[in-house]
Amino acid sequence: MAGSQHPGFHHSHCDRGITPGVQTVSNVEKEKLSAQPAAAAEAATALSIL
């Protein structure tokens, strides 16, 4: 993401000197989502952003 290349704006893997360990957090989140087929289907529902 472009934002991660700028000072002060990060994705979680860039914050506080976080090393690839944060990628584990990301993977945990992905696993949670993939383990919930109903939830994944729900996520595909069209949303209007508020």
Partner: peptide
Amino acid sequence: DAVIKHPLYDQ
């Protein structure tokens, strides 16, 4: 001074 988006943020 800092914004941390969720790693799965992608509309």
